[in-house]
Design a binder for these strands. Structure first.
Length: 189
DNA sequence: TGCTCGATTGTCT
DNA sequence: GACAATCGAGCAC
């Protein structure tokens, strides 16, 4: 099981976004090990993308975007939810929109208090709540393998990648920078 | 210092 | 399908 190294993230955000599909996201929480297969992502370019948080320059919230590739960018949205992102080069970020639970499913189910399996992690706010990801993990280095990291799974399952328009934004919506695994039931609507 | 609204979700109609 | 929840970043004054 190989932890994705810095060079993996040090590429164009569109390349990193597509290659993150099928990878395993692991968070070593206090309650136990939580792992999920990444099935849906969105790419945000820092430069020239009005929908990116880095578009207007460095602020206290997005300072980590200017630090370099391979860090966790987590922000609080709508006063209710957290969203998990991964930094790449040139202030680009990849938003993790959905995962498929692998390890720690009972922990996730307990946190979410829901019956439906697919409701655990089929959205950006849902997966962070299921895994217990908060702003405490803001800026964590994803390449050290300590708390939060991404690995290349041994069982390389084949899948088709579908691209479409991004969701939930009001600017630059024409960019087809949302990528997901075709036919996966955890992909949001 | 005050006000607006967001890379969402769950609930009610 | 419509909308409330609820915090803080970002911008206007």
């Amino acid at each position: 099981m190989g932890i994705l190294p810095r060079p993996f993230f040090a590429r164009d955000v569109l390349v990193v976004a597509q290659e993150l599909l099928g990878k395993h996201l692991t968070y070593l929480s206090k309650e136990g090990r939580l792992t999920g297969r990444i099935v849906e992502v969105e790419a945000y370019k820092g430069i020239g993308d009005p929908a990116s948080h880095a578009y207007r320059g460095s602020t206290s919230r997005n300072a980590i975007l200017f630090k370099g590739p391979g860090f966790a960018y987590i922000y609080f949205i709508y006063g209710v939810h957290y969203c998990l992102n991964v930094t790449t080069t040139k202030r680009g970020v990849v938003l993790i929109r959905a995962i498929e639970p692998i390890d720690g499913i009972e922990i996730m189910r307990k946190r979410r208090n829901t019956e439906r399996f697919t409701d655990l992690t089929n959205g950006p706010g849902k997966l962070t709540r299921s895994m217990g990801i908060t702003k405490e993990l803001y800026g964590v280095d994803l390449t050290t393998g300590k708390e939060l990291f991404i690995t290349n799974p041994e069982d390389k399952e084949k899948f088709d990648i579908v691209s479409s328009k991004r969701i939930g934004i009001n600017v630059a919506t024409e960019k087809p920078w949302r990528f997901y695994i075709k036919g996966n039931s955890f992909v949001s609507k």
